[in-house]
Structure formats: structure tokens, C-alpha cells
């Protein structure tokens, strides 16, 4: 596969995952604004902004509805849902012949739908209907991707993008929430705090899955354990990294290249730090540092994927 194509598929996938995460963050936090809460509006939305990486061109101005609208629709803000979809489509357009027609059509439909809506209604769409519909559209795209595309190298790069983005987003979210959660690690949450934790789980679509494992009693150590270490839940860090590793190994095998030492080592260590650990170990140490290490390893993995498969020098390639 062409390196440029791998690059575009990877980024298409990352942007779509990012759009989905952003939509969910906005939707969940809008919902939480309806109840009285232990967190102030300012604290809440600043945290949302931090979870989205404090995007350029937008900040807290005491009007959450406007903030959500901008983060959803404004094509001038690079982190907005619309911008993510435009970027994803642009990447897909660069590799139009590598993805299936069904994928392209679905992405195109979403693109026209979102951008037309903005040009017709500006920032006045009914978000309550709009946000869930975007998520539905993205889920449909993933379903189409998984059922219409060969699960070869191309698909594996899509997987890498999706799970690396998801892992980084979840780790980042936990990093923001953990000081508050860990103030009372083993006590079941009540009242307003309970709402917050439900919110955290919902941001990762994890509430129902959590309840199945631990019932609706929320304690900090369980929430953390579930989002970090659950091996079966698709939005947990461990699951995401397992999938990422799976894709890396598959690509490595099919490319028939020499062992890619650094990439194998870094991603393997990342996987091990989630697979062979118990939540008590994490809580007994510096949890923040643990999360930072994970984020750091995610970034390294991203850089190494780039260096091995996409932007390598001609000399190294000819030497092989």
C-alpha cells in the first residue's frame, strides 16, 4: 500500500473518532447542565475544553449554548465537529479509490448534511436532535467500514487511527477527572457527585456496560478500573490499546519488513502497562504520572508509525 494512502486513512479515521468523542462530550455535558451539580458551569465547560485539548479560537464566555454551537458547527474552529468531518472527508477524498463506495457515500452524505445545515441555519440548529444524529451517522460509517472493506492493511491503518485517538482521548479525560474522583476512592458516590461520575462514564458510552459488571453503585476505584483496564469494553484504554497492537502486528506481518524494533517495544510496553496491572497498583502510586506515561507512549507510538511506514528516507528503504 502507498504510504500516502496509509497516512490519509489513518487521519481520516482519527478525525472521525475525534468528531465522535467531541459530540459525545458536548451532548453529555449539555445534559448535565439541566441538573444542579457540584461543578460550576464554568468549571464544567473549562474541563470540556481541556478534554478537547483547549482548541484554538474558542473559550469559555459564560454562554454554554453558544460554546456548544461553535464547537459543533463553526468551520473556523479547527476542533469543531464540522471541521473534523471536513478534514476526514478531505482525507477520504485523497484516497477515494482505496475505500469502498459505500464508505465514501456515507461520509459524503454526512458532510453535505452537516455543512448544509450550517449554511442554512448558522448556529441555530436544535442541538438536542442534531448531536445524536451525528453519532448515529458516525456509527453507521464504522459499520460500513467494517462490513464493506477488506480487512487488509488499509483497514488496519483505519483501526490504528481510531484506537490511538480513542485511547488518547480516554486517557486525557481520566487525567482531568482523577483528582476529583480519587478524593474518595472506595466510597460509593451519591447525589450530585453521582451525576458527575455517570457523566464521565457516558462520555465514554460506558454507563450501561459498567452497570452490567459492577451494578449501578459507582465507586472511584471501579470507575477507574473499568475505563482503564476492562479487556472487553470497546472504549476502555486496555481494549483500545489491544486493538491498536493487533493492527500494528498485522501490518508488520503483511509488510514483510524487518522487525520494527522501536515501534514494537513502545507499543508493547504500553500494552503491558495496561494488561498486567491491577487498579490497586495504580491507585497506590501516583495515578497522574501513570496516566501521563500512557499519554506519552501514545504520542510516541504515533510518531513511530509515521517514521516506519510513512515518512521514511529513501536510503533506509533501499538498505533493507
Amino acid at each position: 500500500m502507498l504510504s500516502r494512502v496509509a497516512d490519509s486513512l489513518y487521519w481520516m479515521s482519527r478525525y472521525l473518532e475525534r468528531a465522535e468523542h467531541t459530540v459525545r462530550m458536548l451532548d453529555v455535558n449539555m445534559g448535565l447542565m439541566l441538573d444542579k451539580s457540584s461543578t460550576s458551569a464554568e468549571g464544567r465547560w473549562k474541563r470540556v475544553l481541556a478534554a478537547l485539548g483547549n482548541p484554538h479560537g474558542v473559550g469559555w464566555e459564560d454562554d454554554y449554548y453558544r460554546l456548544v454551537n461553535s464547537l459543533t458547527f463553526d468551520p473556523e474552529i479547527p476542533a469543531s465537529v464540522t471541521s473534523c468531518l471536513i478534514e476526514a472527508r478531505e482525507n477520504a477524498r485523497q484516497v477515494r479509490d482505496e475505500i469502498s463506495s459505500e464508505q465514501w457515500q456515507q461520509l459524503n452524505r454526512m458532510y453535505f448534511w452537516v455543512t448544509q445545515d450550517y449554511s442554512e441555519n448558522g448556529l441555530n440548529t436544535r442541538l438536542a436532535d442534531f448531536l445524536p444524529a451525528v453519532i448515529d451517522g458516525l456509527h453507521l460509517f464504522q459499520g460500513i467500514t467494517d462490513t464493506t472493506m477488506s480487512h487488509g492493511e488499509e483497514w488496519q491503518f483505519i483501526q490504528m487511527g481510531r484506537y490511538l485517538e480513542r485511547a488518547s482521548a480516554t486517557a486525557n479525560l481520566l487525567d482531568l477527572y482523577h483528582p476529583e474522583i480519587l478524593s474518595t476512592p472506595e466510597v460509593a458516590a451519591e447525589g450530585r457527585q453521582y451525576q458527575e461520575w455517570v457523566g464521565l462514564l457516558r462520555c465514554c458510552t460506558a454507563f450501561e456496560a459498567y452497570c452490567k459488571v459492577y451494578t449501578a453503585d459507582l465507586t472511584a476505584d471501579r470507575v477507574l478500573e473499568f475505563l482503564l483496564l476492562n479487556p472487553q469494553f470497546p472504549h476502555s484504554l486496555r481494549y483500545s490499546i489491544d486493538c491498536l497492537r493487533h493492527a500494528l502486528v498485522a501490518v508488520h506481518l503483511s509488510s514483510g519488513r524487518q522487525p520494527v524494533d522501536d515501534l514494537t517495544r513502545v507499543s508493547g510496553r504500553l500494552q503491558a502497562s495496561l494488561s498486567f496491572v491491577q487498579v490497586a497498583d495504580i491507585l497506590s502510586q501516583d495515578t497522574g504520572a501513570y496516566l501521563h506515561r500512557i499519554l506519552q507512549q501514545c504520542r510516541q507510538t504515533h510518531d513511530l508509525i509515521f517514521r516506519f511506514y510513512i515518512q521514511y528516507s529513501v536510503e533506509t528503504a533501499l538498505a533493507m
Binding site: 500500500m1 502507498l2 519488513r257 528503504a317
Partner: peptide, 8 residues
Amino acid sequence: YMRTTAGL
């Protein structure tokens, strides 16, 4: 040559 994920 073309640049591919499997080298040139």
C-alpha cells in the same frame, strides 16, 4: 519506485 508501507 513508489513509496509503500512495505518499503519502495
